[in-house]
Design a protein around this nucleic acid. Structure first.
Lengths: 342, 342
DNA sequence: TTGAAAGCGCTAACAA
DNA sequence: TTGTTAGCGCTTTCAA
C-alpha cells in the first residue's frame, strides 16, 4: 500500500515556512525572489520527503500541464510510428512529455480523444487527422492551444501542416513509368476522405495529363489504407477489362494488396505489371519483388512538426503555410520496362 | 478566441439550483436522489450552455480520472501496434480512454512517463516494460493502481502478465527444424535485458538439449530487437567458424537482419540456411523468402490484458499468474530440409 | 523576502 | 430532496 504522496504543505511544514513560500522556492520562475537559505531549507525538505508536485492540482490552478497531445489515426499503419518517433525525440529533448491517442480513423473517437486531451490542459497538439473534413480538427484553429497537422491536411487548411511533397513524388513515379515505356498507367487511390489521397490523385492526373496518358477508367479507389482495401480495389481494376501495364498505388499498404491481387490473377510483377507504392514503409525493400516507392522523410516530418509546435508553445508566430518536405522516388524491383504490346 | 468553458456554477445558476445539486443531477451515480424536474432543468441548462465537466478539477477532488495509461517500449517494433489495438478495442468499448506513452526502451523515460500518467491519476496501467529489471514497473505491484504487463515480464514477476506462449513456440520451431534434418541449429537472441529473450533462449536450449543438439557456440546475442542488431549478430555467428544450417531468431526483426547478413555472405535461404522468426509481424509473409515464424496472438494478448485490467478497475481480484496465450508455428518458405553435409 | 487569504472547478459530508 | 460548507493541492494576489 503506497502511502499518499507528500504535499507542498508537508514540505513547507518541515522547512518551517508557508506553503506559498515553498512553492516559490521550488519554482524559480515565479515572482518574488527567495532568500538563498530559505530556498535551501525548502529544497532539502522536499528532497527528504520525496516530494513530487501534483500536476493535477497545478493544472487546475495554472491551466497548463507540461505535456502535449499527439493524435494519430492508426498505429498499425506503418508510416505512423516513425513519424511519432520524430515528434517524441524533439519534444523529449525539450523536456516535454507526449501523450498519444489513437483514433482508429474514427471521427467520433477523434473528437472524444482531442477533447480529453484538451480538457486535461495539454499545451499543444500534433494531429494526423482521421478525415480531411474533421470538424474537431478544424475547430482547433480557433482554440487557444497551438496545433500542428502532420501528413494529413484538412480541407479548410487553416492549420499549419507538415507533410511530404507527395505531388512531386507521384509526378516522379509517373515520369519513371513513362520512361520505362508504360502508356496505360492505373492509379489505386486510398480513401477519398483523406487529403493525402486527394493530393496524390490530383498529382497523378496532372502528370498523366501532361504526358497525354490520362485514362479515367484506370482510376479506382481503395476504401482504406490497408492491404485488404488495396486487394479489393485491384480486383476491381482487373475486372474492369481495361488494359494497363502499371499501377501507382496510394500507399505501400495498398501496393501490397495490389501485389496479392496480381498474383491471384496470375500476373507477374514487374514482368506483366509494374507497381509503385508510397511512403517507403519499413520492410517494403524486402518484399518480393522489392517495392519501388515514393519515400517520404517520416522522422523529419515528425521532428519538424514538433519544432513548429515548440515555436507555438513559446509564443512565437507559427508560419501557417504548409511545410512540404522533399520526397524521393526509390526505384527497386517492382518496376520494369513495359511489356511489348502482344 | 475560444471563450472559456462554462462551469458547473454557470449551469447551476441557470437552472436556479446549488452547484452541488447540479453535480448530483448530472452524475446519477452520486448519492442523493434528485427530483426528476430538477434533474431536467439542470440537464437542460447544461445542454444549453454546452457544459463539459472539467476532468482536472474532478480528478483533483475524486482522485480518479476515467482513463488508463498504456506504456509501450517501441512503437516502431511492429509487434507492438497490433497489441495496442487489442487493448484499445476492449477499453474503448468499456467507455475508457487510453493514453499511450512510448519509452523508446529507455528506463528513465519509462520512469518519467509512468510517473506522469500516475500523477495524472490514470486509473490503470498496461505496460510492456523497457527492461525486465525495471524498478519503476516493479513498484507498480505495491501501488494502488491496477497494472497489467503485456508480452514483457519483469524478473520479480509480481504483476499479472499476458503474453504468448513463446516457449511452446520455440520448441515447435526447433522440432520443425530437427524434422527437416537440421542438427546444427543456431539461436540469435534479442537483448538479454528482456524477459522475452530469456524465455525464448531457455526454451531453445531446453529443446536442443532434449534432442541432443545443444551447441553453445551457436548462441549469439543481438543488442536490440532491430534488423540492424540481427544483422550484426548474424555476422558474428558467421564469423565464428562454427558450422550451422539453421537459425532460430529472437524475433522477426532479428530474422530480417539475419536474412540480410546471409545474403551479404552469399548464403541462400532456405537452401543453405533455414531461418525461423518470432511474432509473425505484418508483412513477413511477403518477404523473400516468406518467413517461417512463431505467431503470437497479438490482438488477443492486448484484449486479454485489457479485460484483466477491467477486472482490476472494478475491484475484482485479478488472477496473478501469467496468462500465456497459444502460439503457432507458421511454416513458410524460409525453412527447408537441411542441405546434405558436403 | 515572506505570510495570509483566496480560489482554480469540482464533489463529499453534513444539515436542513 | 436540496443547500451549505469545506477542501482536493497548488499558485497568485495582496499585505506585511
Amino acid at each position: 500500500m503506497a502511502t499518499s504522496r507528500p504535499t507542498l504543505r508537508d514540505v513547507a511544514r518541515r522547512a518551517g515556512v508557508n506553503p506559498a513560500t515553498a512553492s516559490r522556492a521550488l519554482n524559480p520562475a515565479l515572482p518574488g525572489r527567495i532568500a538563498a537559505p530559505t530556498e535551501g531549507r525548502v529544497r532539502e525538505a522536499a528532497e527528504a520527503l520525496g516530494y513530487r508536485p501534483d500536476p493535477v492540482a497545478r493544472s487546475l490552478r495554472t491551466r497548463r500541464s507540461g505535456f502535449v497531445g499527439v493524435v494519430v489515426p492508426d498505429l498499425t499503419n506503418p508510416v505512423i510510428p516513425p513519424i511519432v518517433r520524430g515528434i517524441e525525440g524533439v519534444l523529449w529533448t525539450a523536456g516535454i512529455a507526449c501523450l498519444l491517442a489513437d483514433t482508429d480513423n474514427d471521427v467520433d473517437r477523434e473528437a472524444a480523444l482531442v477533447d480529453e486531451l484538451l480538457a486535461r490542459r495539454c499545451e499543444g497538439l500534433i494531429v494526423s487527422t482521421a478525415t480531411r473534413t474533421s470538424g474537431t480538427v478544424n475547430d482547433l484553429a480557433d482554440g487557444d492551444v497551438p496545433a500542428i497537422l502532420v501528413t494529413r491536411n484538412i480541407d479548410a487548411g487553416s492549420l499549419p501542416l507538415v507533410a511530404g511533397d507527395d505531388a512531386a513524388g507521384v509526378e516522379a513515379a509517373v515520369a519513371h513509368l513513362a520512361e520505362l515505356g508504360h502508356r496505360r498507367i492505373a492509379h489505386v487511390t486510398g480513401p477519398l476522405t483523406l487529403s493525402t489521397t486527394v493530393v496524390r490523385r490530383d498529382a497523378f492526373e496532372a502528370a498523366t495529363d501532361r504526358l497525354g496518358l490520362r485514362a479515367s477508367r484506370l482510376l479506382v479507389h481503395g476504401e482504406a489504407f490497408t492491404a485488404a482495401a488495396g486487394h479489393a480495389a485491384a480486383e476491381e481494376l482487373l475486372g474492369g477489362g481495361e488494359r494497363f501495364t502499371a499501377i501507382v498505388a496510394g500507399n505501400d499498404l495498398i501496393a501490397l494488396g495490389c501485389l496479392e491481387a496480381l498474383a491471384d490473377a496470375g500476373l507477374r510483377c514487374p514482368e506483366d505489371i509494374s507497381l509503385v507504392g508510397h511512403n517507403d514503409t519499413p520492410m517494403v525493400a524486402r518484399l518480393e519483388p522489392p517495392l519501388t516507392t515514393v519515400a517520404i522523410p517520416k522522422a523529419e516530418i515528425g521532428a519538424r512538426a514538433a519544432t513548429l509546435l515548440l515555436d507555438g508553445l513559446e509564443g512565437r508566430e507559427v508560419a501557417s503555410g504548409p511545410v512540404l518536405l522533399p520526397t524521393e522516388l526509390i526505384v527497386r524491383g517492382s518496376t520494369a520496362p513495359a511489356p511489348p504490346r502482344s
